[in-house]
Simulated assay, not measured.
Amino acid sequence: MLDAILNKLMKTTPVEKEQLKSFEVHDDIPIDAFDPALSEKDHAPVLNDHFFRNKRIYVSKHNRYAPYPEHSHTFFEINYMLRGSCDEVVDGEKVHLDTGDILLMDIGSRHSIGYLGTNDLLINILFRDRDINLELLNGLRSSQSVFYEFLLDRKLGGRGDIHHLLFSHAQVDEVQDTLDRIIDEYYLQRQFADTMISGYMSILIAQLVRNYHVKVKKPASKSQQLVLEILQDIDSDFQTVSLEKLAVKYKYNRNYLSNVFKRETGTTFSETLNKQRMLNAHILLTSTALPVSEVMKRVGIRNKAFFYRKYMGYYQKTPGSNR
């Protein structure tokens, strides 16, 4: 890690100065970062996708000098112990992190973080299941590691028995360099930083699969492998992909494919395809000056009323309001 970045992270922030006075949390997370419905349902704060409005991966330093109360989130979280140590409670289980340890938590995991002192640096890296590279995941299929099972289960829409994974610093020497590179890129914000960070995240996933050797109880089934390939088709060809085309490609009946997809992911093919199209539409609407009609065309939707209705359903605003 660059010395300039490390020195920046070691500096006391305004929030930390307040916490140092009272040893109580002074939360700097805005109110709209919490999901009110899920928070009420879980009886604990639940963080939403607020952090990903302008970036695919979010990195931050956890504020020191006060324990952080139990909460959960609608995304994956990596806690990387850059310096020192800390104690957490994850889904009721006590977890201790030393320098170099990495804790990966699933979507919906509930956790609290203990007191961090001056020499403790805990880095949070947040990412969503949509940012798991499907081509990479498919390529890692032969590894059959616990981490592979963890990612595969989430990508297929489930939440299995594994809710968090702890990677000891003794297991992941090469991973620390990749994490340091992600942190450097994030804070330097040089040209193409987002692209570099996404690339490093793929490397990080591959390295964790390679280094976490505990075997799964059973390999992915043929139907899971098939659905993973279909998800990859949706990801790469969302403009024109259809069940009819996939039925021809994989030599299965259309209704069979539809039923297998719903069984393995918990959602329909059309719902998943529409979600992918809306995600790409949102990226185009927030990062380009393309007219809405051109955005519709680029994501494979022709019906304007349908597009507006779906977009409103996902983002609670009209496509034009993002301009």
Rank of each mutant, 00 (worst) to 15 (best):
K11N: 08
K17Y: 01
Q19Y: 02
Q19V: 02
S22L: 12
F23H: 15
E24Q: 12
H26I: 11
D32S: 13
D35A: 03
L38F: 11
K41L: 14
L47K: 12
F51D: 03
F52A: 07
N54M: 04
K61D: 00
Y68K: 15
T74H: 03
Y80F: 15
R83Q: 14
E88N: 12
H96Q: 09
H96V: 11
D98L: 13
T99W: 00
G100W: 03
L103K: 09
S112K: 14
I113Y: 02
T118F: 14
L121Y: 04
L122F: 06
R128A: 08
R128S: 13
D129I: 09
R130Y: 09
D131A: 04
D131C: 01
D131I: 04
N133R: 04
N133Q: 05
E135Q: 11
Y148G: 00
G157F: 05
G158L: 01
G158N: 10
F167N: 04
V172M: 08
V172H: 03
E174R: 07
Q176M: 11
D180K: 14
E185N: 12
Y186Q: 05
Q189R: 14
R190F: 12
R190I: 13
R190G: 15
D194F: 10
G199T: 11
Y200L: 15
V209I: 12
K215P: 00
K215D: 06
K215S: 12
V216R: 13
Q224R: 09
D233F: 05
I234C: 03
Y256K: 10
L257N: 07
L257V: 09
F261A: 07
F261R: 02
T265A: 08
F269G: 04
T272P: 00
M278F: 04
H282W: 10
T286S: 14
K297Q: 13
G300A: 10
R302G: 15
N303P: 01
K317Q: 12
